[in-house]
Design a protein around this nucleic acid. Structure first.
Lengths: 131, 131
DNA sequence: TCCTATTATCTCGTACCCCGATATATCTGT
DNA sequence: ACAGATATATCGGGGTACGAGATAATAGGA
């Protein structure tokens, strides 16, 4: 049975996460992509797969079903941020690559996110310790 | 210009947040509410307003527009988790109260979330420091 | 080789979340 | 009483995610 104080602490922690999330969504939006689309760009960039990750891999990284990742790719591709490339060896596979535009947007977003997280760290760390 | 290592660190941090978020959504779902609805319950419980917070106050806490919070309340009310109560002094205002069922669900969710965050803390803290 | 099982992706229909624009009811100050 | 401000609700639309089912390609066994 949580105490009133614990409810307040949990709400305060969520409020911090929410502020970061809200800020992040706005930052993405200002660069022409949504939050989920930004995360997909980052998952592509951070992948170790040569030739770009297949859709199934980014779906796993994003914790969504493959067809959901496919829908995100549809919207990113029609915005010119990513490209679908047929895998040579396995024609079922579609590998993903950032376009120059996608690379640029991700770079800018990553810079401001690193800055923001360096500000957030000293706030969030102590809150986690207090729980 | 972020380094490959920084892209990887940012992705790893996001992956941790995403895991927590995903786990949290499933926990809420198992108790019959969605993630956003859970956050609204917590915002009501954590409010300092006597007689329960008005819709505008929880909208502000959740960083959404008042009419968005209203929609969440619609769905929570039809599920029997919250009640709308007309304010005596100002008839424009609708104050929110948890039902016994809403209180119970929030208590259970809060307990498991406190446990989970105590596990997450030692993982997330160092990652924030490394950025 | 052929047939079946598996895998990767896509399509369709649905629910939720959030928004902007707009409407309605109520309060406040003059 | 009236004009402007405030609180909430309604309508229409885009984005995200899902389950079910379809399609295409690969892999393994007889």
């Amino acid at each position: 049975m949580p105490s009133d104080e614990q409810y307040r602490q949990l709400l305060a922690f969520r409020t911090q996460l929410r502020r970061f999330d809200h800020w992040s969504r706005e930052a993405a939006s200002e660069h022409g992509v949504t939050h989920a689309q930004h995360q997909l760009l980052l998952a592509i960039r951070g992948s170790a797969s040569a030739g770009g990750p297949p859709i199934g891999e980014v779906a796993e990284a994003l914790l969504v079903r493959p067809h959901t990742a496919g829908e995100l790719v549809d919207r990113l591709a029609s915005g010119g941020f990513v490209e679908r490339v047929q895998d040579d060896a396995d024609h079922r596979r579609v590998r993903l690559r950032l376009t120059a535009e996608g690379e640029r947007v991700l770079r800018d977003l990553t810079s401001v996110h690193l800055d923001e997280l360096r500000r957030l760290g000293p706030v969030l760390g102590p809150m986690l310790d207090d729980l």
